[in-house]
Write a protein that binds this DNA or RNA. Structure first.
Lengths: 340, 340
DNA sequence: CTGAAAGCGCTTACAG
DNA sequence: CTGAAAGCGCTTACAG
């Protein structure tokens, strides 16, 4: 596990105590010049590197952040992880990741085993007793749970959903469908509320179908949408994956986007601008979110080098591309089918 | 960092030594029934949990795996990470991730600081001196470097590339383009070799354009392809991202896939089957790869609970979808432009 | 400026 | 079956 050579080896080679070696390495200015040179030479000669595990135990910290996410395979997290890791690394912290669905016992241990200084929580569905039982600084990111005693970072999901509705309404859609996230999920609930508010504010018709953010949920929703009478001409999906699944299945069903139906997504994942059609979506600035969470946590740990990071404006924006357009002017298709 | 209560607290509450508490927890059968009950009661009463950091130092291990990847934001890794984490968790190991481009000094430390028992390397471009300097069990996954002294897990990239060419040739394409990865990259080199071999074996024309696996590289390649005379009718991209970028840009340029040009990707990322058109691609079983790497590393650490995991066949396969078809029979478009 | 000693929180031979 | 003691590899008051 550790490299072979320990601090005592360096000390004896340099003819000093381990205390001096330790100081020469971590606070060189407190050691006499000649001694320091001797120690450094011994360090070089032996290839010594401090054993972080031992140092951490002694200093009662872990120099490590733990990221907890509901599904590590979800590509939505990639950019967030990379941003967190960058900030953590800049603050001298390692990053540990774990799926938050590993089972209660393992989960409890994670926050208790002295191997993390703080936690970034991307899951709002963990038992609050577990979360609040951890005695570690925590930040909730993107998802949240009112019951967790930890600050939150994320976008205004209701406002974001309203933006999607606004966009569709501005395009003159009078009937819109929302393919939401799963019932228990805070993001799903909040976006759904924003959708309802937006629809009410514009006086247009709104329907909701529960999905689960996935490609397949979107595809499934497209099949259900095709059976609706009249068919909503605008669709707001609670995730880009869902939107892409919806559009893809529409194509299979013979409907074109945006000719037959307009679709707006949520997240602005990397592929969104390269999809065919390029996806109109609500942009969630994932890198900024990850960075902000990491910085906030570093602050909580009292390790901040700089002053307050100055809240980077983490506001959702709508990016309009090619998957939305005014509703079809020719209602023949709908009319024909309705008359059958 | 640690929970408040330590093993001594439990010991004194139960009226036993810390040694007994330790045994009662980790080897209950070695402790008298009455004593054990008393200890367990004290554990319950205090809410004691062992401090993993202390245990690790004592036992000279870290109970942790380190994953090193060239860019954590790359969504290709998501499923690999999740598979590794699952296997690691099953073996009682935590997982630490780091970008492998964090700078030489930090990188060296990572393998030396006693906080990882083993490493999964997804980057073949790290200085071999750094890698071989680590005294930890390692596994190379997907990417590799001959100079690293560590076993490799991955698919046969040359064979995979040949499969792509075979498919195109079977469809009667006589001229194919390969959009490769960057020059220094092993995967790029190996796939390019497979491409060349395949093309030679089938006696068809092959051209190569260097890219870098990204969406934008694919888009850029599409622009270059459009200027080629004659235009290859089949294209093999070294990654799905690249292929999607290529197809997307083709659409912008007024070319249809597969009507004007057939495109095959590499990886079979999650979106591949939902893209429009659904992408024909070489499937790289990322979950199996991650799992195999984690298992191999666990074996190397001597922690395997089960016998040999039995090599799960990690063979690439081609999955044929809608982005490939026979070349256009009508050569008018090419002819017309050529005549200009 | 430097060293002897204690201690971070555990586990594990070694005795009994 | 249980305990006293050493020790994992460091750092850090405390003296001098």
């Amino acid at each position: 596990m550790s490299g072979r050579v320990r601090i005592v080896d360096v000390a004896s080679l340099a003819g000093v105590s381990t205390a001096t070696v330790s100081r020469a390495l971590s606070a060189p200015e407190t050691v006499g010049r000649a001694t320091r040179d001797r120690v450094m030479e011994a360090v070089r000669a032996t290839g010594y590197r401090v054993n972080g595990a031992a140092r951490d135990l002694r200093q009662q910290r872990a120099r490590s952040l733990l990221i907890l996410a509901p599904n590590l395979a979800n590509t939505f997290f990639s950019r967030i992880f990379s941003a967190i890791q960058e900030e953590a690394s800049a603050a001298g912290l390692a990053v540990q990741i774990s799926d938050s669905r590993i089972g209660r016992e393992k989960l409890v241990s994670l926050g208790y085993d002295g191997r993390a200084d703080g936690i970034v929580l991307l899951d709002g569905a963990i038992d609050p007793d577990v979360v609040n039982g951890w005695r570690l600084p925590m930040i909730q990111l993107c998802e949240w749970n009112e019951a967790y005693r930890a600050p939150r970072i994320g976008i205004d999901n209701a406002a974001a959903a309203r933006m999607a509705v606004e966009h569709l309404a501005d395009l003159c859609h009078r009937s819109v469908l929302h393919v939401s996230g799963p019932d228990g999920n805070v993001l799903a609930v909040t976006r759904r509320e924003g959708f309802s508010d937006g629809v009410a504010a514009r006086g247009i018709a709104g329907t909701t179908l529960a999905g689960d953010f996935t490609l397949e949920a979107g595809a499934c929703a497209a099949r259900r949408w095709a059976e609706l009478r009249p068919r909503p001409t605008g669709v707001f999906c609670a995730s880009d994956e869902c939107a892409l699944g919806f559009i893809s299945e529409c194509a299979a069903l013979g409907f074109g986007v945006p000719d037959d139906v307009s679709v707006v997504g949520f997240d602005d994942i990397d592929f969104a601008h390269r999809f065919l059609p390029a996806l109109t979506t609500i942009r969630q600035p994932r890198e900024a979110l990850g960075r902000a969470a990491a910085k906030a946590l570093v602050n909580l740990l009292g390790l901040a080098q700089v002053a307050d990071p100055g809240d980077p404006a983490i506001a959702p924006t709508i990016v309009v591309r090619s998957s939305t357009a005014p509703p079809p002017t020719d209602d023949s298709r709908v009319a024909t089918i309705t008359l059958d």
